[in-house]
Design a protein around this nucleic acid. Structure first.
Lengths: 140, 140
DNA sequence: TCATTATTTTTGACAAAGTCCAAAACTCGG
DNA sequence: CCGAGTTTTGGACTTTGTCAAAAATAATGA
């Protein structure tokens, strides 16, 4: 995210300190939770209400400026990187999340199959596993 | 699920009325939530505690007798059909969930890639879209 | 069959993540 | 700089699920 303020203006969103700070936090901490982001913003602005963090994250998500990912057994996480159809790799034991490029080119990702009459708009892929650190921990 | 009782015994689980009823409910209502299942079991046994439903669902899931799916913005759902690596199609507006056969054969499903040093054990795919009923509703 | 023992079930409190609402503060256009 | 309309804030509330202790039940062996 080069310029949070410009990004907000481009999307006709009033520019506020909270929005700039949250946007910067998301940008600087990919896959952070709302809680993580609140902490990060507080280190920047001094304070922000929990509700504002959610408000901002929701409006940014709705506008497509950021993306929300919600793996099982984890609070929602947010990221900056959008529009490139990448997927995620999540550690079952610590929740560590990494980006993964779409493994198979166009299929199944982005391909609008038709099943059961549904109009499909996204194929979400999560790879579940164990991260290096947790593999070590388990062995010991 | 042909015989819930036999299934429980096969897995060395003490047979209780609650377990049989929950197992039957999951079998008869694929993709139901814990709440749905509680209602269904109550119509069968007359009553069951909320905690017992969770206890049973957890133990059955741990044993691999049923599978838990946790799409974003939805409570956990449970299903009977396991071991065939199928995926899910979820309606964004009403949560309706359908099974989808693995769209691309072996890849990316079940294929253990190695990325970031993670040991991957599952590839979960969710297709997001709008079900026929909600498409109609939106148009009207 | 019956007592024993370990496992389940129940009840009620609790926790995490997020939303709803009304009041105060702020942004932006004129 | 003013006023209208958004945002932000604080607090209560909701949903989904877990924890813990006591009561009930299932499986085992005599």
């Amino acid at each position: 995210m080069r310029d949070p303020e410009a990004t907000l203006r481009q999307h006709d969103l009033p520019v506020t300190a909270q929005r700039i700070a949250v946007l910067r936090a998301v940008s600087g901490h990919p896959h952070a939770t709302a809680d993580d982001l609140t902490a990060s913003v507080c280190g920047d602005l001094g304070t922000i209400s929990r509700q504002s963090v959610y408000n901002v994250l929701n409006v940014l998500t709705d506008k497509g400026i950021i993306r929300r990912i919600q793996p099982a057994d984890s609070p929602a996480r947010y990221e900056d990187r959008i529009g490139d159809n990448h997927h995620h790799l999540v550690c079952r034991s610590c929740g560590r999340t990494e980006d993964v490029c779409c493994a198979v080119g166009e299929a199944p990702c982005l391909k609008a199959h038709s099943h059961h009459g549904f109009k499909i708009d996204e194929a979400e892929v999560i790879y579940w596993g164990t991260c290096p650190a947790c593999q070590k921990k388990k062995r010991s």
